[in-house]
Design a protein around this nucleic acid. Sequence first.
DNA 1: CATTAGATGTGCGTAGTCGCACAGTTGAGG
DNA 2: CCTCAACTGTGCGACTACGCACATCTAATG
Lengths: 296, 296
Amino acid sequence: MEHWDEIRTAYYVVREGTVSGAADALGVHHATVIRHIDALEERLGVKLFQRHARGYTPTEAGADLARVAQTTDDQFSQLGGRLRGQGETVTGELVVTALPSFAERVAPVLVQFQRDHPEVQVRFLTDARVFRLEYGEAHVAIRAGSAPEEPDNVVQPFFTMEIGLYAAPCYVERFGRPTMDTLGDHRFVGFADLRSRAPFMRWQEKHVPLEAVHFRATDDRGLIAAVRSGAGLGFMATCDAHGLVDVMDRQPEWNAQTWLVTHVDLHRSAKVQAALSAFKAAARDWRRDEKGIQLS
Amino acid sequence: MEHWDEIRTAYYVVREGTVSGAADALGVHHATVIRHIDALEERLGVKLFQRHARGYTPTEAGADLARVAQTTDDQFSQLGGRLRGQGETVTGELVVTALPSFAERVAPVLVQFQRDHPEVQVRFLTDARVFRLEYGEAHVAIRAGSAPEEPDNVVQPFFTMEIGLYAAPCYVERFGRPTMDTLGDHRFVGFADLRSRAPFMRWQEKHVPLEAVHFRATDDRGLIAAVRSGAGLGFMATCDAHGLVDVMDRQPEWNAQTWLVTHVDLHRSAKVQAALSAFKAAARDWRRDEKGIQLS
DNA sequence: CATTAGATGTGCGTAGTCGCACAGTTGAGG
DNA sequence: CCTCAACTGTGCGACTACGCACATCTAATG
């Protein structure tokens, strides 16, 4: 029971009553219809039709086949409508992945997105490991660092996370503020992973002697907690720094660029497009807010 | 949503997870599978799979399609089993048509056939008009007269209905028995339709003057009733003649040959074959009984 | 790190399938 | 009774779609 096209042909012959009518309805030549029927009967070893010069009348076997094919045709029609519409409606699941560090910034955007599109179910995966878009693990990934260059991934700039060098008030009270020349005299907080590719860490590696880093944390949360406790100077996003002291003029090379990454196969779908535009709108808002803060 | 074969291909890709696996399972080259998927996605305008070097993972659209195609595959498999088995099982309806004259002889055979095959529903159509096998009006037709020669009909001899010339006892008492020379002096019962092609009627036309036919009936039942009432001499089947007087030596040329006719498209099916063998067995029994009667 | 097995993707030649034209047949209608 | 229209059926030519071979890539394994 392979060759579903032949079943479809037989179904149309039952529906139309004649080979010619079925051929017209199918948009093929009537010789093709005859050949399909013959092949199907040959393969099944059962006569599906009684042939006469005025048309084909189905046998019981043919009528049985037509009933099954009828439901199949209906189901496929519905499916076709669903699939075609799926490109234009925003429904189903939206899977977004990001580094845990971005959770606080990204989550509100997703919550708002879900409110705007009540029919989507948002799944937000935060994990240190890199989810693979080409395996369908997520629709949208938020990546940091240099622009990803994997093939089949469409990459768009998201936002630049502004980074500053901060210290707890009690630390400043005790050790003062650093200058470019006195960096080695301060205590720094860094990442445990020495090979971190964060730009501010590259800067730290270059300008701060290794022995000046007295505290190392596995992730940004630990780093922030350490800085807040007065462990030393540490780089972090400006938004995370409330209550801390901005101890040095910000340098653009510290900033971490983030990217919105989608798989090319999913990028065109309306759902992903809607999510991307929501993210980009949020990024615009953030930029405006920062400028507002700067201006004020 | 035409091209059902492509849907089937996509379904197999979802099932197997890889294009190559699907190609093996389908028995085609993997290039064909790729082309089918590409064509289907192109036509639908929706990505069904995310491609990567280790295989194809379905998108939501692909998974949706696979669910529908799964049920379709199941239904088609069942259908295939049903249809293939249909050639070998004896179920469904069996439609037999015959002249009303044959009803009494044929009906018992059909009753027995239904007892032997409890799953068939017998429909026995008796009508003067000729049912057309090529339109699917019946599976088996019982015809009388010269062998039918329509194309696409397979014809087998059924039984020869032995015909005798009979009269009611009261008629014989009054007029005696006819000889070949005194036929014109007797009263005959015939068919109203002068163009009857029954062989005994042809004989009667040839040897009995028209004016000797004093009674004409539309069918054999009327004829028999007339003879029984003493209207005159009449031809009828030996089996219908109980209580009547066999007034003349039977001549073979009176006998009516009957035929079992089936349409070639249905002839090979087990159901029709079973019905035919039941009829032929019955005919054998009848011949044996007649010979037994002759011998006794 | 090199190797290998297994996967996707593409150009090319061929084989299978389709469309066309014509023949043959049936049923309807004047 | 004759004509006409519609349908089935078949041989032939063209074209599509298939299989093959090769290139390329990835992940796993030693």
